[in-house]
């Protein structure tokens, strides 16, 4: 297993609330890692530490290291904009910008200084193809993204994240607002994406974790209780608390 990120002794506080306790885990490269656990267990907080989205929260304190690309992403010299370009994020609800499909995708690359129309065209097509939505939108790239269905909007958001060529894609319950067909498309997409990218996803849908993730991390009350191959976790969990959660005995 190749590792893309090493999380070492990570602790996080929201004010007095100690939300993550001594998290140590290696995120496997080109794999899908699912983060599971009951509400309030720290899984979304943990996901957000991976691209420093928690920096935006008031009174947050973080200790420990997250090593990516041979350096601690919390080191003072790290350019957070660069970091979030390398580690993209897709949220629970699709949040397309109120502009055309084309401009949604071109927004990131333009921000990073790309102005050539030819280059932008290539990026837009490639990103939409990678997000498995090109065939559905190629004839209406200049229409508003807000006119798309929820499932299409979510794939557009994935395409937008891919447009800046990230290494890692973080997905925070990215299918929870979608119908089963759109959910299925995003799941298939995630499996396809892991060939080029690393995916880390928070999910409340246990069957989704079983279906598509390679590794699974179970969080409870701010602790990382168990991290193992998904197949092992869902057939023979090591920790009793994991067993009780995944079999629906609490949560």
């Amino acid at each position: 297993m190749d590792t893309i990120m090493e999380v070492k002794d990570l602790n996080l506080w929201y004010g007095d609330h100690h939300a993550l306790h001594d998290i140590n885990v290696d995120i496997p490269k080109n794999q899908i890692t699912a983060l599971i656990g009951p509400s309030g267990c720290g899984k979304s907080t943990f996901l957000k530490t991976l691209n420093r989205m928690n920096d935006l929260v008031e009174n947050v304190k973080i200790t420990g290291n997250i090593i990516y690309n041979n350096e601690n992403i919390y080191a003072p010299k790290v350019d957070v904009t660069w970091l979030r370009k390398r580690i993209g994020m897709v949220f629970q609800k699709p949040n397309p910008f109120p502009m055309s499909i084309y401009d949604n995708i071109a927004y990131g690359p333009r921000t990073h200084g790309i102005t050539s129309k030819v280059k932008l065209d290539t990026i837009v097509e490639k990103s939409l193809k990678d997000a498995a939505i090109w065939d559905e939108v190629k004839d209406r790239l200049n229409t508003s993204a807000l006119g798309m269905s929820g499932g299409q909007q979510q794939r557009l958001c994935i395409a937008r994240a891919l447009a800046v060529e990230p290494d890692i894609l973080l997905m925070d319950e990215s299918t929870s607002a979608l119908d089963p067909i759109s959910t299925g498309k995003i799941e298939e997409l995630a499996v396809e994406l892991k060939k080029k990218y690393t995916v880390v996803m928070v999910t409340h849908n246990m069957q989704q974790a079983v279906r598509i993730s390679d590794y699974c991390a179970f969080f409870l009350l701010g602790d990382l209780v168990e991290f193992s191959k998904t197949e092992e976790m869902f057939s023979m969990p090591k920790d009793r608390r994991t067993e009780d959660y995944i079999t629906g005995r609490f949560g």
Partner: peptide, 9 residues
């Protein structure tokens, strides 16, 4: 029930 772990076994 889509069982897992002990239940599935």
């Amino acid at each position: 029930q889509q069982p897992v772990a002990r239940d599935l076994r």
